[in-house]
Simulated scan of single mutants.
Amino acid sequence: MDFKPLVTLLAIVNPLAIVPFFIHYTQGFSKAQRRRTIVISSFSAFVVIAISALLGLRILEFFNISLASFQVGGGMLLLLSSMNMLNAQPAEAKIQTHELEDGAEKAAMGASIAVVPLTIPLLTGPASMSTVVIYAEKAKTFFQLGTLVGYGVVIGLATALCFALAEPIARVLGKTGINVMTRLMGLILAALAVEVMADGLGKLFPILRG
């Protein structure tokens, strides 16, 4: 069984790096409200990954985009995400703090903060979606595709665990510890991004394969 997709997704999603955001956005919440936020955010992360795995290739076909091109573009996106993480920032945190606060205000007026901004874009954004689509194309059997969807369950459970233990984790690791973890995951992600891009470039330009 290939665990590379799971390692890549864990590196991108990296729930540990989102723990400070979770604490910030759930300040003043009751235990029941915080528990509901954890359930919705972890389930939403699974749904995003599952939909990307099952329908991502169909969407590419609809827009007439080759997988090789998507691999190169997705690899570049992963590389940019890894650069963010090497600077101790969440992989999917592409927006500024004040924009996140605006998102939280909108969430208070309707949509749950568990979905925006916690799940999208902080946990699962373009980088994680493109990664799932790339690995979905490599799935040759229904079992392999089901395994990829199953990895979404693992990501959801990891998210739920990190958020449920948010305050103890923040106390034990501290800001420095979380930053170190984020940088390590960023280094792993950078290596995986280069591999994905190399595979895509090899398909676009066969001469590169020698």
Rank of each mutant, 00 (worst) to 15 (best):
L161K: 08
A166S: 15
F142Q: 13
A104L: 15
F163W: 14
M109H: 15
K138H: 10
F62D: 14
L77V: 07
L148F: 05
M129V: 14
E101I: 06
E99P: 05
V153D: 14
V132H: 02
A111E: 12
L60S: 07
I120A: 10
M129T: 14
V153H: 09
N84H: 11
N179C: 08
A136W: 02
A108S: 11
L187Q: 12
G156L: 07
A136F: 00
F143K: 06
A108K: 09
F163H: 08
K175D: 00
A170R: 03
A68G: 07
A93D: 11
S69I: 15
E137M: 04
K140I: 12
A108G: 12
S66P: 12
M109V: 15
E92P: 02
G73V: 05
A170C: 01
G75R: 00
P117Y: 07
L80A: 00
I178E: 06
V153L: 15
G74I: 05
I169T: 10
N64C: 10
A160R: 10
G75E: 00
S112C: 09
I59G: 03
L189A: 04
G174R: 00
A114E: 13
M109P: 13
L201T: 11
G125Y: 03
C162K: 01
A104H: 15
A107D: 11
L184M: 10
V72I: 08
S81E: 06
G186W: 00
Q96L: 07
L60H: 07
F143P: 09
G186T: 01
G146H: 08
K106D: 13
P121R: 06
I113M: 12
Q96E: 15
V116T: 14
A114P: 13
A164T: 13
M129E: 12
M85T: 01
L201P: 13
R171M: 07
L189S: 07
S128M: 03
T176W: 10
P121N: 05
E137L: 05
E105M: 15
A191S: 08
G200Y: 02
K138P: 00
V132Y: 02
A88I: 11
I113K: 12
